[in-house]
């Protein structure tokens, strides 16, 4: 028992500085389903726990907003639909830039991306945390509307986790 207590005492500070709780949020479907690669095809979660391409052959295109084919705004407004199954929405609804792909990537890969200004929107880690705490489209992940599971925890907890991880030297798994 004593050994276990010592282990827990040692592990607690490390956990607070770990990238794991951040990765848990970033790889959650509310975030990763739109942080897709160059094909620009958003993902939908399946009831079996996996993902499938967004229905209706939707493509974000180079614009990442569907301008080349069907604009996202045809169905997605600046707020969530009120009925389960209706299109969610938030201000600025669009796919993130392609260099911010997280879907199908490992926590280690995403960790390195998040620290790289070329792949994080030119931000410092403090600015990344601020972005998570204030961007309407990011905050949507915690209030995704009826029938969609929110991202884990709260925006405030995620901001705190990013800042603690950054203060610890931003170690990657």
């Amino acid at each position: 028992m004593r050994a276990l207590l010592i282990l827990c005492a040692l592990a607690a500070p490390a956990a607070a500085q770990s990238f794991d709780p951040i990765a848990e949020v970033l790889l959650h479907p509310r975030c990763a389903n739109c942080h897709v690669g160059a094909d620009g095809i958003p993902l939908w979660s399946t009831e079996a726990g996996g993902t499938q391409p967004h229905g209706y052959h939707m493509q974000g295109g180079e614009s990442r907003m569907g301008i080349e084919t069907l604009p996202c705004s045809t169905c997605h407004t600046n707020r969530n639909g009120v009925l389960e199954g209706s299109a969610p929405g938030a201000e600025g609804w669009a796919l993130p830039p392609v260099e911010m792909q997280w879907a199908a990537r490992t926590p280690a890969q995403i960790c390195e991306q998040l620290k790289d200004p070329d792949r994080n929107g030119g931000r410092t880690l403090a600015e990344v945390a601020d972005h998570v705490g204030h961007d309407p489209l990011v905050l949507w992940g915690w209030t995704p509307g009826p029938g969609l599971e929110p991202a884990p925890g709260t925006p405030e907890e995620t901001v705190a986790a990013i800042l603690a991880w950054a203060d610890a030297g931003a170690p990657c798994p």
């Binding site: 229905g55 604009p71 705004s73 045809t74 169905c75 407004t77 639909g81 009925l83 389960e84 199954g85 209706s86 299109a87």
Partner: peptide
């Protein structure tokens, strides 16, 4: 469908298609 899922209700809002 009433949930953006079929397109039967499409109109133009300030020139762009919406449900």
């Amino acid at each position: 469908c009433g949930i953006d899922a079929c397109g039967a209700c499409t109109v133009h809002l300030d020139g762009l298609a919406v449900r």
